[in-house]
Design a protein around this nucleic acid. Sequence first.
RNA 1: GCCCGGGUGGCGGAAUGGCAGACGCGGAGGUCUCAAAAACCUUUGGGGCGACCCGUGUGGGUUCGACUCCCACCCCGGGCACCA
Length: 852
Amino acid sequence: MKQYDPHEIEPRLQKAWEEASAYKVPNDGSRPRKYVLEMFPYPSGDIHMGHVSNYTYGDVIARYATMRGFDVLHPMGWDAFGLPAENAAIKRNSHPAKWTYENIATQQASFQRMGFSYDWDRKVVACDPEYYRWGQWLFLKFWERGLVERKNSPVNWCPDCKTVLANEQVEEGTCWRCHSEVEKRDLTQWYFKITDYAQELLDDLDQLDGWPERVKQQQANWIGRSEGAEVEFEVVGLDGAATDEYITVFTTRADTLFGCSFFLLAPEYPGLMEFVEGAGHEAEVQALVEAASKVSAVERAQGEREKHGVFTGRCVINPVNGEQVPVWVADYVVADYGTGAVMAVPCGDQRDFEFARKYDLPIPPIILADDDPLFAQLNGVKERQVTSVDWEEALEAEGTLVQSGEYTGMRGGKGSEGEAAIVAALEAAGRGRRKVEFRLRDWLISRQRYWGNPIPAIHCEHCGVVPVPEDQLPVLLPEDIDLAAGETLATHESFAQCTCPVCGAPARRETDTMDTFTCSSWYYMRYTDPRNDTAPFAPEAANAWLPVDQYIGGIEHAILHLLYSRFFTKVCRDMGLLNFDEPFTNLLCQGMVLDAHGEVMSKSKGNVVSPEDMIDQYGADVVRAAMLFLGPPEKEKLWNEDGLAALNKFLNRAWRVVHDLVGKAGEETLFDPNADALNAHEKAMAMKRERHRVVGKVTADLDRYNFNTALAAIMELVNATSDFLHLREAEHRMNCETGGPLTRDVAETIVKLLAPIAPHWAEELWQNVLENEGSVHKQPWPTYDPELAKADEVELAVQINGKVRSKIMVAAEAAEDDIRAAALAAVEGELAGKDVVKSIVIPSRLVNIVVK
RNA sequence: GCCCGGGUGGCGGAAUGGCAGACGCGGAGGUCUCAAAAACCUUUGGGGCGACCCGUGUGGGUUCGACUCCCACCCCGGGCACCA
């Protein structure tokens, strides 16, 4: 018997598979299609354990689907634009493209060493002009549809990366990439109007039954829908007269309007200084605005802080009762949510309550819990009798409205009767209307960096900002740039200078590039038609393969990439390019691979393990199997070197068992010539049952991506086979008595069950030991017969009052009464002197006898 | 504060409401060997000489029967957060 030698087998088979284009996707539509996709990697250097787990899961799913009869699209590419390449280039005085393509070559070689079944003809590299040109094309189409906007607003600026960031890319006030503290800057930037799709992005989460709940929850949180109303407050002039000017607020609690005792503006409220001019408090307001602007993003992200505010000297009129209320500037008002102005109701909002306490503002009670001592006094009272209360905290829950004019006595709270009535009255009076607000902001996509997809726009002093005509795409990134010397696209004159496509006058090219997340928002579409040079993809190709049946990637993209991709899909659908709403039908979010102590692997900690080293030592199949055996894919996994040795032992053992089964083990045979052959027939039948039981179990487990328990079941089959082989006599008997060549069936079954997991191991045995034609990976998945998996006799536990007291063997098909009788007989001694109240029979499991 | 997950042997982890701990690691003992490694066999939740007893974060509940369902609480991980 040839020893299992992955170092000889794996390279040889990888070469053969490559030469045969073994994983080129058949696309004749003769079999049902399945699209299995793993998130494409950033070419950051060598592959790490996160790649190994992610891509091993994907490869097992893809290979299994192929054996289950699907034509499987399983492509791979690289998310190749981005800052690390640029930083590396500056450091080495080189070019980002060099670093990027070198890393891609390294990673691709590693993926091939891992035996991943990608259709390499469909490789997509995001920094190739043939790819990014279509990203530019999509940008122009988005622009045509009114989904591109240039606007000036306060943005997040990372001083280290020297670029702006999208909201989604700021984590607790720091840059998601380098974790430097971000600064707020007022800049004119490019946006995708993802907010136009906010409602649909939220609603369609309900379609995604195949997504983890936590991801959907995170997206819903991020989109942050609030139902409420806009209310207009008329501004009182400096002379105390009405002005017919209004400030609008957004509120979800219009029911509490009668309790509004002051009014707030954000420090960044547009036109604030003009508004307060002449009211006598300009200096204090100015000081507060400056103090607020000094609060760092990190502090801001800490959550609740002490509130600060100053009176502006101005007043507005509450539209429900005509009362004048003072306008304050307060640093807890968020400028870019709602209108940046807020009506303050201290009795019904904890923040306003704290503010009122601090600055000694009145807290008129207008909503009360029914057990509030004040309720007896104010129940039904419409006019304000009590002007302020001395509570511990605001009542944010539901309650009954008091001192609220004609609304007194109604229920108050979010979406309450009182809220509806007051909004209706405001609408009738033209002072308010229903409004839905979202927390989601538009997606800031421009970046002040070189290594990205150039935004195809031109600035003309006569025509304004105009799109680059489609026939001039792609706007190529210039290659001759000296980043180390500080050159940028903006200073690269041969790039920046151009002519206006509208009027022909000299003009300036846009020198910002697009967020790399724009590249990853549609790459899965490109894979369906990767070499198309007249369109990003043909709709027929995309609609044939998409949506992705199974998407696999890290949880860190729960919001960023997954939200952006959903947005792109919906826009492409509205453009008529796609005929579905959601890009990823099923989503598997793998947990992180940590070291044996549960620590994140990092270079600085020195606990990084190298997949390449492990392949060198054990071969790819062992690495794959060890990764799968670690635990459920979506959980965090603690990597332990012992697992490699264990799975190496298992593949060796299974290797020998397969040889033994087909009589090729030679001297090393596991057959025991001295073993007792008396029960050979029974053991052969048991072997056959085990084979069918395990195929059923492995099939069910792989369907649910329970790779660890699937492997455990295969181990059980191998163990059972190994035990069985100790009977030489049994081999002969089972072939005669079970109506077929069982040994060969068991051997082929073991090989096929392991094929998705250990593809080289299985292929070698399939072709060179079992001597079959073709690849094991093109074979149909083994079938199983649930009837054959059933035993003739089963063991049942006999319980008395839920405690196991005995075991009995009964025929599998025994009648309930017979089982009950056998059980009672088995524990007869213990039942003496006791009343049997009843007995419960659970077929093939247990009998529970209830006694008193 | 709000919203999601999750607490099971020495360890990773199994268990459609039905014998808790599959499978593997580790441990103990053995076979083979001059010896070791490898391989193979036996054993391995805790306690007790034993019949047995105790065990799935804690406390209740439902049930003939609860790791599993319900209620309350504790701890760990993640997301959101002055969002009006």
